[in-house]
Amino acid sequence: MISDRWDRYAQARSPRRLVNAAGASTWFNWTQYPDHGPGLEVLDLDDGSRVLDLGCGKGGNLAHVCASGYHGIGVDVSAPQLAHARTRWPGLPVHHRDAVSYLLDGEESFDAVYSVFGALWFVDPEVLLPAIHHRLRGVLAFSWSPMKPIPGLPRWDLEPGEWRERLEKHGYEDIECQVIDPPAGAESDQCTFFVRATRAGGRMPRSTREHAR
């Protein structure tokens, strides 16, 4: 089973550091490099926003979402990963589910959905993108890197142009595709691909919302 493979992968992964370089106990990381790349601001959140983490893993990014005052929910297929998240951050709202079934089983909307090396990389986008669209009001953002495959796990290593086509096909707009280079002095030269889009006809951008007030 795919969940078993994720469990084995999770056991081999080191947990997130207790604090980052700035001394913070929670922080957001879109890349595989510590303290590098954009942060939570790319989700364009308002006070009280509802945010969904697809493939939350050990919960580091989700913990930062919740600590920042937003209503975060995490979904992951690996029970050991979620057990770690609940131990480190008691009360963290995480669910042992696969991304598609979680999305299709509910109706309540989310202001933002994100995935960091998670479900957007490992689930068929022809199935997952419509399922996200069903629950999304605002921003979808995700990141991945061209690392070596994980044995037994399918992966969608699409080029940025291919992602743009899939997103447009399934009702997304304002699509941004970026390549984030590794930081200076990094041991690896692997870049990180980052994609951000909005649901067509969803929430207006924050700058427009603030101007309208």
Score class of each variant (00 low, 15 high):
Gln81Ile: 01
Asp105Trp: 08
Val100Cys: 08
Gly138Cys: 04
Leu82Phe: 12
Thr87Met: 15
Ala131Ile: 08
Val77Gln: 08
Ser78Tyr: 13
His134Ala: 09
Val113Thr: 07
Pro130Val: 13
Ser115Gln: 09
Leu128Asp: 05
Leu103Ser: 03
Ser68Trp: 11
His96Lys: 09
Pro93Thr: 00
Arg86Lys: 13
Glu107Gln: 14
Asp98Arg: 14
Leu128Trp: 00
Gly59Met: 09
Glu108Lys: 09
Glu126Ser: 11
Val65Ser: 05
Val65Ala: 01
Val127Asn: 05
Glu108Thr: 08
Val94Phe: 14
Gly74His: 00
Leu120Ala: 12
Asp124His: 06
Phe142Ala: 05
His134Met: 07
Gly59Pro: 05
Ala67Leu: 03
Gly69Arg: 08
Ala85Ser: 10
Gly60Glu: 14
Gly74Pro: 00
Pro93Met: 12
Tyr70Leu: 04
His95Asp: 00
Gly138Val: 09
Asp111Glu: 14
Pro80Lys: 13
Arg135His: 05
Ile73Ser: 00
Trp121Leu: 15
Phe142Asp: 05
His64Tyr: 02
Gly74Trp: 02
Ala141Ile: 03
Glu107Lys: 08
Pro130Trp: 10
Val113Gly: 02
His64Gly: 04
Ser101Arg: 13
Glu108Asn: 06
Pro125Arg: 14
Val75Pro: 02
Cys66Val: 12
Ala141Tyr: 12
